[in-house]
Design a protein around this nucleic acid. Structure first.
Lengths: 256, 256
DNA sequence: CTTGACCTTGACGTTGCGTCAACGCTTCAT
DNA sequence: ATGAAGCGTTGACGCAACGTCAAGGTCAAG
Protein backbone atom coordinates (compact mmCIF):
# COMPACT_ATOMS: atom_id res chain seq x y z
CA UNK A 1 0.00 0.00 0.00
CA UNK A 2 1.16 3.45 -0.91
CA UNK A 3 1.41 6.75 0.93
CA UNK A 4 0.23 9.89 -0.75
CA UNK A 5 3.70 10.99 -1.81
CA UNK A 6 4.47 7.60 -3.30
CA UNK A 7 1.23 7.69 -5.22
CA UNK A 8 2.00 11.20 -6.40
CA UNK A 9 5.50 10.42 -7.63
CA UNK A 10 4.36 7.27 -9.44
CA UNK A 11 1.79 9.38 -11.28
CA UNK A 12 4.06 12.33 -11.79
CA UNK A 13 2.01 14.87 -9.84
CA UNK A 14 2.35 16.63 -6.47
CA UNK A 15 0.73 15.57 -3.22
CA UNK A 16 -1.11 18.88 -3.22
CA UNK A 17 -2.66 18.02 -6.57
CA UNK A 18 -3.77 14.63 -5.23
CA UNK A 19 -5.47 16.21 -2.22
CA UNK A 20 -7.05 18.75 -4.53
CA UNK A 21 -8.46 15.94 -6.66
CA UNK A 22 -9.85 14.38 -3.49
CA UNK A 23 -11.48 17.68 -2.54
CA UNK A 24 -13.30 18.04 -5.82
CA UNK A 25 -14.20 14.36 -5.90
CA UNK A 26 -12.11 13.55 -8.94
CA UNK A 27 -10.14 10.87 -7.12
CA UNK A 28 -12.00 8.92 -4.42
CA UNK A 29 -10.67 9.19 -0.88
CA UNK A 30 -8.93 5.91 -0.01
CA UNK A 31 -8.98 4.02 3.26
CA UNK A 32 -6.82 5.33 6.09
CA UNK A 33 -4.33 3.31 8.07
CA UNK A 34 -4.37 3.21 11.88
CA UNK A 35 -2.63 6.55 12.15
CA UNK A 36 -4.94 8.36 9.75
CA UNK A 37 -2.64 8.25 6.73
CA UNK A 38 -4.24 7.73 3.33
CA UNK A 39 -3.39 4.34 1.89
CA UNK A 40 -3.53 3.86 -1.88
CA UNK A 41 -3.48 0.89 -4.22
CA UNK A 42 -2.50 0.47 -7.86
CA UNK A 43 -5.97 1.40 -9.09
CA UNK A 44 -5.51 4.85 -7.63
CA UNK A 45 -2.19 5.17 -9.46
CA UNK A 46 -3.84 4.25 -12.74
CA UNK A 47 -6.73 6.64 -12.29
CA UNK A 48 -4.40 9.39 -11.22
CA UNK A 49 -2.20 8.87 -14.27
CA UNK A 50 -5.28 9.13 -16.44
CA UNK A 51 -6.39 12.30 -14.70
CA UNK A 52 -2.94 13.75 -15.18
CA UNK A 53 -2.89 12.86 -18.87
CA UNK A 54 -6.12 14.74 -19.50
CA UNK A 55 -5.40 17.66 -17.19
CA UNK A 56 -2.02 18.02 -18.86
CA UNK A 57 -3.84 18.40 -22.16
CA UNK A 58 -5.53 21.45 -20.69
CA UNK A 59 -8.84 19.76 -20.06
CA UNK A 60 -10.68 21.45 -17.16
CA UNK A 61 -10.91 19.12 -14.17
CA UNK A 62 -14.70 19.19 -14.22
CA UNK A 63 -14.57 17.83 -17.75
CA UNK A 64 -11.95 15.24 -16.78
CA UNK A 65 -14.49 14.05 -14.24
CA UNK A 66 -17.18 13.64 -16.88
CA UNK A 67 -14.87 11.96 -19.36
CA UNK A 68 -13.42 9.40 -16.97
CA UNK A 69 -16.83 8.48 -15.62
CA UNK A 70 -18.44 8.28 -19.06
CA UNK A 71 -18.77 5.43 -21.51
CA UNK A 72 -16.39 4.87 -24.43
CA UNK A 73 -18.51 6.76 -26.98
CA UNK A 74 -18.97 9.90 -24.89
CA UNK A 75 -15.31 9.64 -24.06
CA UNK A 76 -14.34 9.55 -27.72
CA UNK A 77 -16.67 12.43 -28.48
CA UNK A 78 -15.24 14.49 -25.67
CA UNK A 79 -11.70 13.84 -26.79
CA UNK A 80 -12.65 14.85 -30.32
CA UNK A 81 -14.01 18.10 -29.03
CA UNK A 82 -10.92 18.77 -26.96
CA UNK A 83 -8.81 18.14 -30.03
CA UNK A 84 -10.81 20.69 -31.95
CA UNK A 85 -10.21 23.21 -29.20
CA UNK A 86 -6.51 22.48 -29.27
CA UNK A 87 -6.41 23.07 -33.03
CA UNK A 88 -8.07 26.41 -32.45
CA UNK A 89 -5.56 27.16 -29.73
CA UNK A 90 -2.66 26.46 -32.06
CA UNK A 91 -4.11 28.74 -34.72
CA UNK A 92 -4.62 31.45 -32.15
CA UNK A 93 -1.05 31.22 -30.91
CA UNK A 94 0.26 31.26 -34.46
CA UNK A 95 -1.67 34.43 -35.24
CA UNK A 96 -0.26 35.95 -32.11
CA UNK A 97 3.24 34.98 -33.17
CA UNK A 98 2.78 36.78 -36.48
CA UNK A 99 1.67 39.91 -34.70
CA UNK A 100 4.66 39.67 -32.41
CA UNK A 101 7.02 39.16 -35.33
CA UNK A 102 5.91 42.41 -36.91
CA UNK A 103 6.34 44.15 -33.65
CA UNK A 104 9.69 42.73 -32.68
CA UNK A 105 11.73 45.15 -34.76
CA UNK A 106 10.57 48.48 -33.49
CA UNK A 107 7.87 50.16 -31.52
CA UNK A 108 5.19 49.19 -34.01
CA UNK A 109 3.09 47.70 -31.26
CA UNK A 110 -0.50 47.07 -32.25
CA UNK A 111 -0.03 48.35 -35.78
CA UNK A 112 -0.81 46.37 -38.94
CA UNK A 113 1.95 46.06 -41.49
CA UNK A 114 0.38 48.37 -44.04
CA UNK A 115 0.30 51.23 -41.55
CA UNK A 116 3.96 50.72 -40.71
CA UNK A 117 4.72 50.89 -44.43
CA UNK A 118 2.71 54.05 -44.78
CA UNK A 119 4.53 55.70 -41.90
CA UNK A 120 7.83 54.66 -43.45
CA UNK A 121 6.76 56.38 -46.65
CA UNK A 122 6.05 59.58 -44.73
CA UNK A 123 9.47 59.32 -43.14
CA UNK A 124 10.98 58.96 -46.61
CA UNK A 125 9.21 62.16 -47.61
CA UNK A 126 11.20 63.88 -44.93
CA UNK A 127 8.40 64.25 -42.39
CA UNK A 128 9.82 64.72 -38.92
CA UNK A 129 9.66 61.93 -36.34
CA UNK A 130 7.65 63.98 -33.89
CA UNK A 131 4.77 64.28 -36.31
CA UNK A 132 5.03 60.66 -37.35
CA UNK A 133 4.55 59.60 -33.74
CA UNK A 134 1.35 61.55 -33.63
CA UNK A 135 0.13 59.90 -36.79
CA UNK A 136 1.20 56.52 -35.46
CA UNK A 137 -0.83 56.89 -32.29
CA UNK A 138 -3.86 57.93 -34.30
CA UNK A 139 -3.45 54.95 -36.58
CA UNK A 140 -3.18 52.65 -33.59
CA UNK A 141 -6.62 53.80 -32.58
CA UNK A 142 -8.01 53.59 -36.09
CA UNK A 143 -6.61 50.10 -36.60
CA UNK A 144 -8.17 48.97 -33.33
CA UNK A 145 -11.47 50.55 -34.28
CA UNK A 146 -11.87 49.22 -37.83
CA UNK A 147 -9.32 46.38 -38.17
CA UNK A 148 -10.98 45.03 -41.31
CA UNK A 149 -11.09 48.35 -43.15
CA UNK A 150 -7.60 49.50 -42.28
CA UNK A 151 -6.01 48.13 -45.47
CA UNK A 152 -8.47 50.01 -47.65
CA UNK A 153 -8.08 53.21 -45.68
CA UNK A 154 -4.31 53.08 -45.99
CA UNK A 155 -4.57 52.32 -49.70
CA UNK A 156 -6.55 55.54 -50.10
CA UNK A 157 -3.90 57.39 -48.16
CA UNK A 158 -1.23 56.06 -50.49
CA UNK A 159 -3.25 57.32 -53.45
CA UNK A 160 -3.55 60.69 -51.78
CA UNK A 161 0.23 60.88 -51.76
CA UNK A 162 0.16 61.08 -55.56
CA UNK A 163 -1.37 64.53 -55.24
CA UNK A 164 1.32 67.25 -55.41
CA UNK A 165 -0.65 69.34 -52.96
CA UNK A 166 -0.50 66.60 -50.39
CA UNK A 167 3.22 66.17 -50.91
CA UNK A 168 3.65 69.89 -50.49
CA UNK A 169 1.59 69.83 -47.31
CA UNK A 170 3.76 67.17 -45.77
CA UNK A 171 6.92 68.92 -46.90
CA UNK A 172 5.81 72.02 -45.05
CA UNK A 173 5.06 70.04 -41.96
CA UNK A 174 8.48 70.17 -40.32
CA UNK A 175 8.23 72.07 -37.10
CA UNK A 176 4.45 72.04 -37.32
CA UNK A 177 4.01 70.16 -34.05
CA UNK A 178 5.74 72.86 -32.05
CA UNK A 179 4.32 75.65 -34.18
CA UNK A 180 2.79 78.50 -32.13
CA UNK A 181 -0.74 79.63 -32.92
CA UNK A 182 0.41 82.83 -34.57
CA UNK A 183 2.75 81.20 -37.05
CA UNK A 184 2.10 82.50 -40.54
CA UNK A 185 2.47 79.06 -42.14
CA UNK A 186 -0.76 77.91 -40.57
CA UNK A 187 -2.69 79.94 -43.11
CA UNK A 188 -0.73 78.16 -45.82
CA UNK A 189 -1.79 74.82 -44.33
CA UNK A 190 -5.39 75.96 -44.31
CA UNK A 191 -5.19 76.96 -47.96
CA UNK A 192 -3.85 73.62 -49.07
CA UNK A 193 -6.22 71.65 -46.92
CA UNK A 194 -9.17 73.61 -48.20
CA UNK A 195 -8.16 72.96 -51.82
CA UNK A 196 -7.83 69.27 -51.10
CA UNK A 197 -11.15 69.15 -49.33
CA UNK A 198 -12.91 70.87 -52.19
CA UNK A 199 -11.44 68.44 -54.69
CA UNK A 200 -12.35 65.51 -52.48
CA UNK A 201 -15.88 66.80 -52.12
CA UNK A 202 -16.15 67.17 -55.87
CA UNK A 203 -15.00 63.58 -56.30
CA UNK A 204 -17.60 62.51 -53.73
CA UNK A 205 -15.01 60.96 -51.45
CA UNK A 206 -16.19 62.39 -48.21
CA UNK A 207 -17.59 59.56 -46.11
CA UNK A 208 -15.48 56.66 -47.17
CA UNK A 209 -14.72 55.51 -43.65
CA UNK A 210 -17.63 54.93 -41.37
CA UNK A 211 -16.43 55.77 -37.89
CA UNK A 212 -18.99 56.26 -35.23
CA UNK A 213 -19.44 59.85 -34.06
CA UNK A 214 -17.70 59.45 -30.76
CA UNK A 215 -14.65 57.98 -32.35
CA UNK A 216 -14.42 60.79 -34.91
CA UNK A 217 -14.70 63.24 -32.04
CA UNK A 218 -11.88 61.42 -30.26
CA UNK A 219 -9.62 61.73 -33.28
CA UNK A 220 -10.54 65.39 -33.62
CA UNK A 221 -9.72 66.01 -29.99
CA UNK A 222 -6.42 64.22 -30.38
CA UNK A 223 -5.53 66.44 -33.31
CA UNK A 224 -6.50 69.53 -31.34
CA UNK A 225 -4.25 68.57 -28.44
CA UNK A 226 -1.34 67.66 -30.65
CA UNK A 227 -0.08 71.14 -31.33
CA UNK A 228 -0.57 74.72 -30.18
CA UNK A 229 -1.32 75.67 -33.79
CA UNK A 230 -4.02 73.10 -34.30
CA UNK A 231 -6.77 75.15 -32.74
CA UNK A 232 -5.90 78.11 -34.95
CA UNK A 233 -5.92 75.94 -38.05
CA UNK A 234 -9.37 74.65 -37.28
CA UNK A 235 -10.58 78.15 -36.51
CA UNK A 236 -9.40 79.39 -39.90
CA UNK A 237 -11.11 76.54 -41.67
CA UNK A 238 -14.28 77.06 -39.68
CA UNK A 239 -14.30 80.75 -40.65
CA UNK A 240 -14.21 79.62 -44.27
CA UNK A 241 -17.26 77.40 -43.80
CA UNK A 242 -15.64 74.08 -42.89
CA UNK A 243 -16.36 71.87 -39.93
CA UNK A 244 -14.71 68.92 -38.29
CA UNK A 245 -11.36 67.40 -39.07
CA UNK A 246 -11.53 63.66 -39.20
CA UNK A 247 -14.65 64.23 -41.30
CA UNK A 248 -13.92 67.65 -42.66
CA UNK A 249 -17.02 68.94 -44.46
CA UNK A 250 -18.62 72.13 -45.68
CA UNK A 251 -21.32 73.72 -43.54
CA UNK A 252 -24.37 74.77 -45.50
CA UNK A 253 -24.19 78.54 -45.25
CA UNK A 254 -27.33 79.79 -43.58
CA UNK A 255 -28.74 83.19 -44.45
CA UNK A 256 -28.02 85.85 -41.89
CA UNK B 1 -12.85 63.33 -23.08
CA UNK B 2 -13.88 59.75 -22.71
CA UNK B 3 -15.70 57.78 -20.06
CA UNK B 4 -14.35 54.45 -18.97
CA UNK B 5 -16.71 52.46 -21.15
CA UNK B 6 -15.89 54.53 -24.22
CA UNK B 7 -12.21 54.01 -23.55
CA UNK B 8 -12.80 50.32 -23.08
CA UNK B 9 -14.76 49.85 -26.30
CA UNK B 10 -12.26 51.84 -28.36
CA UNK B 11 -9.52 49.55 -27.09
CA UNK B 12 -11.58 46.40 -27.30
CA UNK B 13 -11.51 45.48 -23.60
CA UNK B 14 -13.99 45.53 -20.72
CA UNK B 15 -14.35 48.26 -18.14
CA UNK B 16 -13.46 45.72 -15.51
CA UNK B 17 -10.16 45.09 -17.24
CA UNK B 18 -9.44 48.83 -17.34
CA UNK B 19 -10.08 49.18 -13.63
CA UNK B 20 -7.93 46.14 -13.01
CA UNK B 21 -5.09 47.73 -14.96
CA UNK B 22 -5.51 50.83 -12.80
CA UNK B 23 -5.34 48.73 -9.66
CA UNK B 24 -2.06 47.10 -10.63
CA UNK B 25 -0.65 50.37 -11.93
CA UNK B 26 -0.43 49.25 -15.53
CA UNK B 27 -2.58 52.13 -16.74
CA UNK B 28 -2.30 55.41 -14.79
CA UNK B 29 -5.43 56.68 -13.09
CA UNK B 30 -6.74 59.64 -15.09
CA UNK B 31 -8.24 62.86 -13.80
CA UNK B 32 -11.80 62.76 -12.55
CA UNK B 33 -14.58 65.06 -13.66
CA UNK B 34 -16.66 67.02 -11.14
CA UNK B 35 -18.82 64.00 -10.38
CA UNK B 36 -15.94 61.65 -9.79
CA UNK B 37 -16.04 59.90 -13.17
CA UNK B 38 -12.72 58.96 -14.72
CA UNK B 39 -12.00 61.05 -17.78
CA UNK B 40 -9.64 59.67 -20.43
CA UNK B 41 -7.84 61.09 -23.43
CA UNK B 42 -6.46 59.52 -26.60
CA UNK B 43 -3.14 58.66 -24.97
CA UNK B 44 -4.96 56.35 -22.62
CA UNK B 45 -6.63 54.69 -25.60
CA UNK B 46 -3.27 54.13 -27.27
CA UNK B 47 -1.63 52.75 -24.16
CA UNK B 48 -4.62 50.53 -23.47
CA UNK B 49 -4.56 49.16 -27.01
CA UNK B 50 -0.89 48.35 -26.55
CA UNK B 51 -1.56 46.64 -23.24
CA UNK B 52 -4.33 44.65 -24.84
CA UNK B 53 -2.13 43.59 -27.75
CA UNK B 54 0.50 42.17 -25.41
CA UNK B 55 -1.92 40.68 -22.89
CA UNK B 56 -3.76 39.03 -25.74
CA UNK B 57 -0.50 37.39 -26.74
CA UNK B 58 -0.50 35.73 -23.34
CA UNK B 59 2.11 38.01 -21.83
CA UNK B 60 1.66 38.25 -18.05
CA UNK B 61 0.59 41.76 -17.05
CA UNK B 62 3.64 42.23 -14.85
CA UNK B 63 5.77 41.65 -17.94
CA UNK B 64 3.56 43.94 -20.03
CA UNK B 65 4.39 46.60 -17.48
CA UNK B 66 8.12 46.09 -17.89
CA UNK B 67 7.95 45.96 -21.67
CA UNK B 68 5.91 49.10 -22.15
CA UNK B 69 8.05 51.07 -19.76
CA UNK B 70 11.32 49.81 -21.24
CA UNK B 71 13.45 51.07 -24.07
CA UNK B 72 13.28 49.74 -27.63
CA UNK B 73 16.09 47.19 -27.18
CA UNK B 74 14.73 45.63 -24.02
CA UNK B 75 11.36 45.68 -25.69
CA UNK B 76 12.64 43.80 -28.72
CA UNK B 77 14.46 41.32 -26.47
CA UNK B 78 11.34 40.75 -24.42
CA UNK B 79 9.25 40.17 -27.51
CA UNK B 80 11.83 37.71 -28.81
CA UNK B 81 11.64 35.80 -25.57
CA UNK B 82 7.86 35.74 -25.65
CA UNK B 83 7.97 34.43 -29.18
CA UNK B 84 10.24 31.63 -28.05
CA UNK B 85 7.78 30.74 -25.34
CA UNK B 86 4.96 30.72 -27.85
CA UNK B 87 6.90 28.35 -30.10
CA UNK B 88 7.35 26.07 -27.12
CA UNK B 89 3.67 26.34 -26.35
CA UNK B 90 2.75 25.31 -29.88
CA UNK B 91 5.04 22.29 -29.70
CA UNK B 92 3.54 21.32 -26.35
CA UNK B 93 0.00 21.53 -27.68
CA UNK B 94 0.94 19.53 -30.75
CA UNK B 95 2.41 16.77 -28.61
CA UNK B 96 -0.75 16.79 -26.56
CA UNK B 97 -2.82 16.51 -29.71
CA UNK B 98 -0.89 13.40 -30.73
CA UNK B 99 -1.48 11.81 -27.37
CA UNK B 100 -5.15 12.62 -27.63
CA UNK B 101 -5.33 11.24 -31.15
CA UNK B 102 -4.04 7.87 -29.99
CA UNK B 103 -6.51 7.91 -27.19
CA UNK B 104 -9.56 8.99 -29.15
CA UNK B 105 -10.31 5.56 -30.55
CA UNK B 106 -10.49 3.47 -27.43
CA UNK B 107 -9.70 3.53 -23.78
CA UNK B 108 -5.95 3.66 -24.34
CA UNK B 109 -5.64 6.68 -22.10
CA UNK B 110 -2.08 7.41 -21.04
CA UNK B 111 -0.61 4.53 -23.02
CA UNK B 112 2.14 4.89 -25.61
CA UNK B 113 1.48 3.45 -29.02
CA UNK B 114 3.87 0.53 -28.69
CA UNK B 115 2.07 -0.72 -25.59
CA UNK B 116 -1.25 -0.59 -27.38
CA UNK B 117 0.28 -2.64 -30.19
CA UNK B 118 1.63 -5.13 -27.71
CA UNK B 119 -1.75 -5.55 -26.04
CA UNK B 120 -3.31 -6.03 -29.48
CA UNK B 121 -0.85 -8.81 -30.12
CA UNK B 122 -1.87 -10.51 -26.88
CA UNK B 123 -5.49 -10.20 -27.93
CA UNK B 124 -4.60 -11.83 -31.25
CA UNK B 125 -3.09 -14.72 -29.33
CA UNK B 126 -6.53 -15.26 -27.84
CA UNK B 127 -5.83 -13.87 -24.39
CA UNK B 128 -9.07 -12.91 -22.71
CA UNK B 129 -10.05 -9.23 -22.31
CA UNK B 130 -10.17 -9.45 -18.55
CA UNK B 131 -6.51 -10.31 -18.30
CA UNK B 132 -5.56 -7.73 -20.92
CA UNK B 133 -7.13 -5.03 -18.81
CA UNK B 134 -4.94 -6.06 -15.92
CA UNK B 135 -1.88 -5.89 -18.13
CA UNK B 136 -3.01 -2.56 -19.51
CA UNK B 137 -3.27 -0.98 -16.08
CA UNK B 138 0.15 -2.29 -15.17
CA UNK B 139 1.61 -0.88 -18.36
CA UNK B 140 0.02 2.48 -17.67
CA UNK B 141 1.98 2.60 -14.47
CA UNK B 142 5.18 1.37 -16.07
CA UNK B 143 4.89 3.86 -18.93
CA UNK B 144 4.40 6.69 -16.46
CA UNK B 145 7.36 5.49 -14.40
CA UNK B 146 9.93 5.01 -17.17
CA UNK B 147 8.53 6.83 -20.22
CA UNK B 148 11.87 6.80 -22.02
CA UNK B 149 12.53 3.11 -21.53
CA UNK B 150 9.07 1.89 -22.39
CA UNK B 151 9.87 1.23 -26.06
CA UNK B 152 12.82 -0.94 -25.17
CA UNK B 153 10.88 -2.84 -22.53
CA UNK B 154 8.07 -3.57 -24.96
CA UNK B 155 10.57 -4.65 -27.60
CA UNK B 156 11.90 -7.24 -25.13
CA UNK B 157 8.38 -8.39 -24.49
CA UNK B 158 7.81 -8.88 -28.19
CA UNK B 159 10.98 -11.00 -28.35
CA UNK B 160 9.73 -13.04 -25.43
CA UNK B 161 6.68 -13.91 -27.49
CA UNK B 162 8.94 -15.88 -29.85
CA UNK B 163 9.45 -18.39 -27.06
CA UNK B 164 7.02 -21.35 -27.38
CA UNK B 165 6.81 -21.60 -23.61
CA UNK B 166 5.59 -18.03 -23.36
CA UNK B 167 3.01 -18.64 -26.07
CA UNK B 168 1.85 -21.69 -24.21
CA UNK B 169 1.64 -19.76 -20.97
CA UNK B 170 -0.60 -17.16 -22.53
CA UNK B 171 -2.72 -19.79 -24.22
CA UNK B 172 -3.39 -21.37 -20.85
CA UNK B 173 -4.32 -18.03 -19.37
CA UNK B 174 -8.02 -18.02 -20.21
CA UNK B 175 -9.98 -18.08 -17.00
CA UNK B 176 -6.84 -17.44 -14.99
CA UNK B 177 -8.11 -14.17 -13.51
CA UNK B 178 -11.07 -15.85 -11.88
CA UNK B 179 -9.15 -19.01 -11.09
CA UNK B 180 -9.57 -20.17 -7.47
CA UNK B 181 -6.47 -20.84 -5.42
CA UNK B 182 -6.91 -24.61 -5.58
CA UNK B 183 -7.05 -24.86 -9.35
CA UNK B 184 -4.66 -27.49 -10.62
CA UNK B 185 -3.52 -25.37 -13.57
CA UNK B 186 -1.70 -23.02 -11.24
CA UNK B 187 1.03 -25.63 -10.79
CA UNK B 188 1.32 -25.75 -14.55
CA UNK B 189 1.82 -21.98 -14.59
CA UNK B 190 4.48 -22.24 -11.96
CA UNK B 191 6.31 -24.91 -13.98
CA UNK B 192 6.41 -22.80 -17.11
CA UNK B 193 7.35 -19.63 -15.28
CA UNK B 194 10.14 -21.38 -13.47
CA UNK B 195 11.55 -22.75 -16.72
CA UNK B 196 11.41 -19.30 -18.25
CA UNK B 197 13.06 -17.72 -15.23
CA UNK B 198 15.86 -20.23 -15.26
CA UNK B 199 16.53 -19.63 -18.94
CA UNK B 200 16.40 -15.88 -18.40
CA UNK B 201 18.81 -16.14 -15.50
CA UNK B 202 21.15 -18.24 -17.62
CA UNK B 203 21.04 -15.58 -20.33
CA UNK B 204 21.77 -12.95 -17.69
CA UNK B 205 18.62 -11.01 -18.42
CA UNK B 206 17.48 -10.43 -14.94
CA UNK B 207 17.78 -6.75 -14.20
CA UNK B 208 17.09 -5.23 -17.56
CA UNK B 209 14.63 -2.67 -16.25
CA UNK B 210 15.72 -0.54 -13.35
CA UNK B 211 12.59 0.17 -11.33
CA UNK B 212 13.03 1.50 -7.88
CA UNK B 213 12.17 -0.92 -5.09
CA UNK B 214 8.90 0.66 -4.13
CA UNK B 215 7.62 0.60 -7.65
CA UNK B 216 8.51 -3.06 -8.08
CA UNK B 217 6.67 -3.74 -4.84
CA UNK B 218 3.66 -1.86 -6.17
CA UNK B 219 3.57 -3.98 -9.30
CA UNK B 220 3.95 -7.13 -7.18
CA UNK B 221 1.06 -6.04 -4.98
CA UNK B 222 -1.06 -5.33 -8.01
CA UNK B 223 -0.40 -8.80 -9.35
CA UNK B 224 -1.24 -10.31 -5.98
CA UNK B 225 -4.57 -8.53 -5.85
CA UNK B 226 -5.48 -9.34 -9.41
CA UNK B 227 -6.62 -12.91 -8.87
CA UNK B 228 -7.44 -15.35 -6.10
CA UNK B 229 -4.91 -17.76 -7.56
CA UNK B 230 -2.06 -15.27 -7.62
CA UNK B 231 -1.07 -15.76 -4.01
CA UNK B 232 -0.95 -19.53 -4.48
CA UNK B 233 1.23 -19.15 -7.57
CA UNK B 234 3.73 -17.01 -5.72
CA UNK B 235 3.67 -19.42 -2.78
CA UNK B 236 4.53 -22.32 -5.06
CA UNK B 237 7.38 -20.39 -6.64
CA UNK B 238 8.65 -19.32 -3.27
CA UNK B 239 8.65 -22.91 -2.08
CA UNK B 240 10.89 -23.67 -5.03
CA UNK B 241 13.36 -20.99 -4.07
CA UNK B 242 12.08 -18.00 -6.02
CA UNK B 243 11.24 -14.58 -4.78
CA UNK B 244 9.42 -11.55 -6.10
CA UNK B 245 7.46 -11.24 -9.27
CA UNK B 246 8.26 -8.10 -11.12
CA UNK B 247 11.87 -8.99 -10.41
CA UNK B 248 11.56 -12.72 -10.04
CA UNK B 249 14.87 -14.10 -8.79
CA UNK B 250 16.35 -17.11 -7.09
CA UNK B 251 17.02 -16.96 -3.37
CA UNK B 252 20.42 -18.24 -2.35
CA UNK B 253 19.52 -21.37 -0.42
CA UNK B 254 20.86 -21.03 3.08
CA UNK B 255 21.95 -24.09 5.03
CA UNK B 256 19.42 -25.20 7.65
C1' DC C 1 -40.07 62.90 -11.44
C1' DT C 2 -39.14 58.62 -12.73
C1' DT C 3 -36.66 55.40 -15.49
C1' DG C 4 -32.74 53.42 -17.44
C1' DA C 5 -28.15 53.59 -18.47
C1' DC C 6 -24.17 55.00 -16.99
C1' DC C 7 -20.50 55.76 -13.10
C1' DT C 8 -18.27 54.70 -8.28
C1' DT C 9 -15.96 51.40 -4.65
C1' DG C 10 -15.86 46.98 -2.40
C1' DA C 11 -15.76 42.40 -2.23
C1' DC C 12 -16.35 37.63 -3.39
C1' DG C 13 -15.97 33.81 -7.25
C1' DT C 14 -13.20 31.33 -10.64
C1' DT C 15 -9.16 27.53 -11.82
C1' DG C 16 -5.59 24.54 -10.30
C1' DC C 17 -3.06 24.16 -7.53
C1' DG C 18 1.58 26.47 -4.40
C1' DT C 19 2.81 27.50 -0.04
C1' DC C 20 2.82 28.26 4.73
C1' DA C 21 1.09 27.05 9.48
C1' DA C 22 0.41 24.20 13.30
C1' DC C 23 0.22 19.86 14.62
C1' DG C 24 0.70 14.35 14.91
C1' DC C 25 3.29 9.91 13.63
C1' DT C 26 7.57 7.25 12.63
C1' DT C 27 12.03 6.34 12.53
C1' DC C 28 16.72 6.76 13.16
C1' DA C 29 20.83 8.21 15.44
C1' DT C 30 22.45 9.43 19.61
C1' DA D 1 14.84 7.40 25.99
C1' DT D 2 15.12 11.26 23.57
C1' DG D 3 15.22 14.49 20.19
C1' DA D 4 15.57 15.70 15.39
C1' DA D 5 14.34 14.59 10.65
C1' DG D 6 11.04 13.60 7.54
C1' DC D 7 6.84 11.87 6.63
C1' DG D 8 1.50 12.59 7.24
C1' DT D 9 -2.94 15.48 8.56
C1' DT D 10 -6.29 19.64 8.06
C1' DG D 11 -6.98 24.56 7.35
C1' DA D 12 -6.35 28.58 5.20
C1' DC D 13 -4.40 32.18 2.38
C1' DG D 14 -2.08 33.42 -2.25
C1' DC D 15 -1.74 33.85 -7.35
C1' DA D 16 -3.51 35.70 -12.35
C1' DA D 17 -6.75 38.17 -14.70
C1' DC D 18 -10.39 39.42 -14.51
C1' DG D 19 -16.22 38.17 -14.05
C1' DT D 20 -19.90 39.22 -11.42
C1' DC D 21 -22.84 40.87 -8.01
C1' DA D 22 -23.94 44.57 -4.48
C1' DA D 23 -25.13 49.02 -3.01
C1' DG D 24 -25.12 53.18 -4.06
C1' DG D 25 -24.38 58.10 -6.85
C1' DT D 26 -25.04 60.58 -11.59
C1' DC D 27 -26.84 61.86 -16.02
C1' DA D 28 -29.97 62.29 -20.00
C1' DA D 29 -34.53 61.60 -21.66
C1' DG D 30 -39.46 61.32 -21.55
Amino acid sequence: MLTISQLATYAGVTTRAVRHYHQIGLLPEPERDQSGYRSYDADAVVRLIRIHALADAGVPLARVQELLDAGPEEFADGVQEIDKELRGEIRRVQRTRKRLARLAGGQHLALPECVVDYLDRLRDLGVEEQYIELERDAWIMVAAQVPDAIEAVIARKHEDLNDPDVIKLYSLLNGAVEMPADDARIVEFADIIERLAIRAAAAGELDATAFDDGFAALLDATMLNSSPGAERLLAILEARGWQGWTRLHQVPRSAG
